[in-house]
Computed example of a mutant assay.
Amino acid sequence: MNRRNTPTKEAILNLLLSSRKALSQDAIERALTININRATIYRVLNRFCEDDIIHKIVAEDGKQYFAICKKCENQEEVVQHHFHFRCLSCDTIECLQVPVAYSVPNGYEVQNANCVLTGVCNDCS
């Protein structure tokens, strides 16, 4: 869907583009240099998800993080179902750009997968 570009959308998108890791709504709100209310940030993030610009990661504690949809170096398309890694030391989440192998019983159709591994990231170890 073609949506109108606004300074708010541009600020949030630029922040996500410059981040190597997924960001929570709170982290986005703190990092923005312009004053945007929480409801507007949430609405923009959800629209970006609907438009497949970003994807939402729900951690095991229920907190939501958002990341730009990026391609793997060896892939022609964005890997839709991939693992995420949450560092217990720095509390960041990053996409692990490797395909997820899984199986489901006959008759089931997977439309979304949310896989979060927890431990200590490369920067913290």
Score class of each variant (00 low, 15 high):
12 I>T: 08
12 I>E: 09
13 L>F: 13
14 N>E: 15
15 L>W: 03
15 L>H: 02
16 L>P: 07
16 L>D: 10
17 L>E: 14
21 K>E: 12
23 L>V: 08
23 L>G: 08
25 Q>I: 14
27 A>W: 03
28 I>P: 03
29 E>V: 03
29 E>W: 08
29 E>M: 14
30 R>C: 01
31 A>P: 00
33 T>M: 06
35 N>W: 08
36 I>W: 01
37 N>T: 04
37 N>W: 00
37 N>F: 02
37 N>I: 05
37 N>Q: 08
39 A>T: 11
40 T>N: 12
42 Y>Q: 10
42 Y>A: 14
43 R>K: 13
45 L>I: 07
45 L>F: 10
46 N>G: 01
46 N>M: 11
46 N>A: 05
47 R>N: 13
50 E>S: 10
51 D>S: 08
51 D>K: 08
52 D>H: 10
52 D>M: 02
53 I>F: 09
54 I>W: 07
54 I>R: 06
54 I>P: 03
55 H>V: 00
55 H>S: 09
55 H>A: 02
55 H>L: 09
57 I>R: 05
58 V>R: 15
60 E>A: 06
62 G>V: 09
63 K>G: 01
63 K>D: 06
66 F>K: 05
67 A>D: 11
68 I>P: 00
69 C>H: 01
71 K>S: 04
71 K>V: 07
71 K>G: 00
71 K>D: 00
71 K>E: 09
72 C>P: 01
74 N>Y: 12
78 V>M: 06
79 V>D: 07
84 H>Y: 14
85 F>W: 06
85 F>P: 03
86 R>Q: 13
86 R>F: 15
87 C>Y: 10
91 D>T: 03
93 I>F: 04
93 I>K: 06
93 I>C: 02
94 E>I: 06
94 E>T: 09
94 E>V: 05
95 C>R: 12
95 C>M: 10
97 Q>A: 10
97 Q>R: 12
97 Q>C: 06
98 V>C: 01
98 V>R: 09
99 P>D: 09
99 P>G: 06
100 V>W: 00
100 V>I: 13
102 Y>F: 15
102 Y>L: 12
104 V>W: 02
106 N>V: 10
107 G>F: 07
108 Y>P: 05
110 V>N: 03
110 V>S: 03
111 Q>L: 11
112 N>C: 01
113 A>D: 05
113 A>T: 13
